[in-house]
Write a protein that binds this DNA or RNA. Structure first.
Lengths: 333, 333
DNA sequence: CTGAAAGCGCTTACAG
DNA sequence: CTGAAAGCGCTTACAG
């Protein structure tokens, strides 16, 4: 039989109320009584039932985390940041994915209504913004990571995508490259828009255009990176660099360039985005704009926990800095 | 105010008992009554509180998952397998890591005692076997993934590590390589022992030895892979192939070989283990022994759920097949 | 087929 | 400083 607060009370010769008081260090308790209760607690190995505490208190000391998938290369870092922070605060983390479409979403919202957790960190799965907005309106504290739709409705944490794109452009220009091919992610992502704007802005300032023919609207896959390069090679569109909006499609570009006999970085310099583990293993290793994934997770969790603790959430996104990591695919000038 | 079973009961003109019955389709309920209750439930958007249900029933329909870290390249696949399976069964998954040492372990065991979850899937973090064994003895259902210590105390799911090692050896022999350098993982891991035994066995059968000088005891890092190659190159130890116990150290070997001007696969063929995403992006792409990570996660979750459902857990490890994936670092003969 | 009541294991006014 | 009692929102014998 599991040991309950009643067992502790009986053994210590006090009421359950008193045991609860020493457990939560709430209200005045005689020092000697408290000591006795504490000793009984450790003797019996008593741990309060989280369910009962949650029911009585009306909260669960658990946060939820919703992500589109767990297999993206940077997701582990984000998760680790969230878990570490949440754990240090004595909270648990309930993990959800929308891997299986509508059904997953339904199950997930069920858990919300069931009050299985007090707040939610989310990396937005496609087509769930509406659902999440609804939950938020009904009072569920939510923090978004890498807000795709740039919806001001939620607190969120983001990175300096615009500056990240700009830093890539400056690095290429410094290396004497002015005719880059850009391989974007899905165009409805806010981050894609910002990276493109930052990149194009620097180019324009330096007097260089970025014609549509040198912007390939990709989807963050390796195949998109390959295709972008192959198509330009086929049409004879000239380019002396590639700026891909993520490392995976940069790796695709690298592969296609090598297959076509172009040398990287001699003929074409390549820059990616993210700095996932893969980036340092490609041939040549990838110069990339690093996003601090783990810190994004930590920050989002902290904002959520603070909010649960009563601190009002920040009204504007918390923005973390990106950093250009220079490797051989686009070496320093 | 949240809507409770009492609200539903009042609105439908029945007792809470009856509402509970239609909720759980338990006991006989008049069809018309049931229909009425159901309509009130959906009208009010009623969802039972998971905490209250858990407290009353004595279980939480939640499983825990404990892993050493979330940032290993294959962890995402395992997690996805567990989450998908658990979610499909209507369970939630509480995620724990032992990223922060002793303190993490303490917090984790606290959650166990608090009965925050009904059962546990674990990829064993270093030095936690004792803790986990203790929890298991106290009645917590546990399933191990990739059992490091090969402790028969728990149900577990594993892969054909021995056969995986053997398949690597056969592939190398078929390609005319008989002087392989082996780069192992930590020697106290059961999987390392098995891979080595399988590999060495095939070599021996073919009349080839595997002298200690050609076995480098590594630690699954890229640095270990580099070092192993560099040392043999420095001492003049000859080898015509590398069999690394994971892809990351194989990538290290690849890097060191290239730096030394050795051609892969012409001078040295290289085989890894795992088939993480990185494997297809190295130069040349890595031939490797694939482990079905997602299926391992799915299988472990299924075993645990079945156990929670009353099915006795299998007395011996569930073993999933590895598969040799041939790429250019060790092409077919 | 249906309901009143006890119980799950806590917390929290309230009273002393 | 301490305790009896009600309440959190369910489920489950038990009785009818």
């Amino acid at each position: 039989m599991r040991v309950t607060i009643a067992d502790v009370a009986r053994e210590a010769g006090v009421s359950k109320t008193t045991v609860s008081r020493v457990l939560n260090t709430k209200g005045e308790v005689d020092d000697r009584t408290a000591a006795r209760v504490r000793s009984v607690i450790s003797q019996l190995g008593y741990v309060p039932s989280s369910r009962a505490v949650g029911l009585a208190r009306g909260n669960s000391r658990t946060v939820g985390m919703l992500v589109p998938t767990l297999t993206w290369p940077w997701m582990g870092e984000v998760l680790q940041g969230v878990v570490d922070t949440v754990e240090a605060a004595g909270y648990g983390m309930l993990l959800f994915t929308c891997n299986r479409g509508v059904e997953s979403v339904a199950r997930f919202t069920g858990q919300v209504s069931a009050r299985a957790f007090d707040g939610l960190v989310v990396v937005e799965p496609e087509n769930t913004l509406e659902t999440i907005t609804g939950l938020h309106r009904k009072g569920l504290p939510v923090v978004l990571i890498d807000d795709r739709a740039q919806s001001p409705a939620f607190p969120s944490v983001a990175t300096t995508n615009r500056e990240g794109g700009a830093s890539a452009a400056r690095h290429l220009l410094a290396g004497g490259r002015s005719r880059p091919l850009v391989i974007t992610g899905p165009s409805h992502f806010g981050c894609v828009h910002d990276r493109l704007a930052g990149f194009g802005g620097v180019l324009a300032e330096a007097g260089h255009g970025l014609p549509p023919a040198r912007v390939h609207h990709g989807d963050f896959t390796e195949a998109a990176g390959c295709l972008a390069v192959q198509q330009r090679l086929a049409t004879g569109e000239e380019f002396d660099a590639v700026f891909a909006h993520n490392d995976v499609s940069a790796a695709g570009a690298l592969r296609a360039l090598r297959a076509a006999g172009r040398r990287v970085p001699d003929d074409v310099a390549v820059i990616g985005f993210d700095d996932v583990p893969l980036a340092s293993h490609t041939d040549p290793p990838l110069t990339t704009v690093r996003q601090p994934m783990r810190r994004m997770g930590e920050t989002a969790a902290r904002v959520l926990l603070d909010h649960l603790g009563g601190t009002p959430a920040p009204g504007t996104p918390v923005v973390l800095p990106t950093e250009l990591v220079v490797r051989n695919s686009a070496p320093a000038a």
